[in-house]
């Protein structure tokens, strides 16, 4: 029997199942990602994309299967700050009285002491992260006063400040302006070169072709997984979206 060397994989999900009070949200899902790989997670609403993220971050428990992050358990990945999660804009309370600086500083909480007092290195990491997403002019701006794109960049900065090696991004391109979209694209290339592993969910098929080395098509379970050029076929997409032809998804350009 072949033994798998987990050290080669950043993320290793094997036959994972998640159910909420008996309602199956995801079953028999598999995923293996190496450093420097960008994988697109594509599926309809309710296909289990967010559930997949939740399982990888340990926000929900899996009922079956196994998840290894850098060869270790999800719990030790949490302790080691290995995974950063960038939420959908809709997934956060934009009226929360909190500034850009405070949000990005939250990326450092996991490695601070119990009082969460920032050290010099934390302050520097936050400064650098905010600079990378071009929000230096908005350090003390409440997130409620930001545009959708600026808010997205704030949470990206939080992930950068966390210095995680795995980034999970829920719909990174939805509701953002062109400038932010360009900045995120550039960051993706930098992250890839830094050897970070990225898993992003998206509705936008063009972005999948543009950035993703791999694609994972899901509809409660894995419909297809592999290199984008091989797997991202009209047939597979049609299956993933329950019979809707890819033409209507890609738009007139493709």
């Amino acid at each position: 029997m072949e033994t798998i060397n987990y050290q080669n994989f950043r993320i290793e999900a094997e036959n994972i199942c998640v159910d909420y009070n008996g309602k199956v949200a995801l079953y028999d899902a598999n995923l293996r990602l190496k450093p420097g790989q960008i994988c697109g997670l594509v599926g309809m609403n309710g296909a289990g994309k967010t559930t997949f993220f939740n399982a990888l971050t340990g926000f929900v428990n899996i009922s079956k299967g196994k998840i290894r992050i850098n060869g270790e358990s999800v719990r030790s990945a949490q302790k080691d700050q290995t995974i950063a999660y960038v939420p959908q804009n809709e997934g956060i309370d934009s009226q929360f009285p909190i500034s850009v600086w405070e949000v990005v500083m939250m990326g450092r909480y996991g490695s601070m002491n119990v009082f969460r007092c920032p050290r010099e290195s934390d302050v520097q990491a936050v400064k650098d992260a905010i600079e990378r997403v071009d929000l230096t002019d908005h350090l003390s701006t409440p997130i409620g006063n930001l545009s959708g794109g600026q808010r997205k960049r704030t949470f990206l900065a939080r992930a950068i400040a966390q210095r995680a090696s795995i980034l999970l991004l829920d719909e990174p391109f939805s509701g953002v302006d062109i400038r932010t979209e360009k900045l995120i694209s550039e960051l993706f290339i930098q992250f890839k070169n830094e050897g970070k592993t990225i898993l992003l969910s998206t509705h936008d098929m063009i972005h999948v072709r543009e950035f993703c080395d791999l694609v994972l098509l899901i509809n409660k379970t894995v419909v297809a997984y592999g290199e984008t050029s091989e797997v991202f076929t009209p047939e597979n997409i049609t299956t993933t979206f329950g019979g809707i032809s890819p033409d209507s998804l890609f738009g007139p350009e493709s």
Binding site: K79, Y85, D93, M106, G110, V114, R158, Q162
Partner: peptide, 22 residues
Amino acid sequence: LIFRKDLMLYCFDPRHAKTVGI
């Protein structure tokens, strides 16, 4: 007072709290 920042994070974004091991 001790847990004010953690509680703020918990109210704001519990998923992130969980992800970073809080």
